[in-house]
C-alpha cells in the first residue's frame, strides 16, 4: 500500500488482486448475497482508491482495510434496509390475469357453485331460499311477497336446504 501511495501501479494491482478474495469473504459474512457481493467488493475497492492518502504506512494495513470494508458494507446494508422498507419486490402472487374469473371473487369456486345449485332448484324452493336466506326477510314479509303461506314457505326452505346439502357436500 505504501508503494501504491507513491504511484507504483504494479504493486497496487497486485495488492488489489490479493485482497479481493478476502473482501468477498467479508462481504459474504456481512450478509450480502449473489451479485451484491461483487458490487460490495467493487465499492470497497473504489473507496480504497479514493482515500488511499489516509493510510499511514507506520500502522498495519489489515485493520485499515477491514475498517474501510466494514464502513462501506454497513452503508450498503443500511441503504438496502431503507430500500426494502419502502419498496416491495413483485412476486408471482402480485401478478394477475385480465379475465373476470381471476379477479371477481363472486365468480370464483364455491360461490359460483352455490349460485348454480340454487338456480337448479324447483321454482318454489328457489324463491324460499332467495327471500328467507339471501334477502333475509321475515316469514311474514316473505309470505306477503310470494303469495305463499308461511308454513308452505317453511317446508319449501327446509326441502331446498336439504337438497343443497346433497348437491354441495361439505369438503
Amino acid at each position: 500500500m505504501a508503494a501504491a501511495q507513491d504511484g507504483d501501479q504494479k504493486a497496487y494491482a497486485a495488492l488489489l488482486q490479493a485482497i479481493t478474495p478476502y473482501l468477498r469473504a467479508v462481504a459474504w459474512r456481512a450478509g450480502l448475497e449473489g451479485d451484491e457481493i461483487e458490487d460490495g467488493v467493487q465499492d470497497i475497492l473504489l473507496t480504497i482508491h479514493s482515500i488511499r492518502q489516509s493510510y499511514d504506512p507506520r500502522r498495519p494495513f489489515a485493520p485499515w482495510l477491514l475498517a474501510v470494508a466494514r464502513h462501506r458494507l454497513i452503508d450498503r446494508l443500511r441503504r438496502r434496509g431503507r430500500l426494502r422498507f419502502r419498496e416491495t419486490e413483485l412476486t408471482p402472487v402480485h401478478e394477475t390475469f385480465a379475465t373476470d374469473e381471476t379477479n371477481l371473487p363472486e365468480e370464483n369456486g364455491e360461490i359460483r357453485r352455490l349460485k348454480k345449485a340454487i338456480a337448479g332448484l324447483p321454482p318454489g324452493q328457489r324463491q324460499a331460499v332467495e327471500l328467507l336466506r339471501l334477502e333475509e326477510l321475515s316469514l311474514k314479509e316473505a309470505a306477503a311477497r310470494s303469495g305463499q303461506s308461511p308454513s308452505a314457505l317453511k317446508v319449501a326452505l327446509h326441502r331446498a336446504l336439504r337438497r343443497l346439502r346433497i348437491l354441495m357436500p361439505r369438503s
Partner: peptide
Amino acid sequence: MRSTEELISSLATELAPVRR
C-alpha cells in the same frame, strides 16, 4: 457492470502518487 478484474486494472492504470 464491469468485472472486478477490469476495475482493478483500470484503477491501477489511473493510479497517481498521493501525498500522505
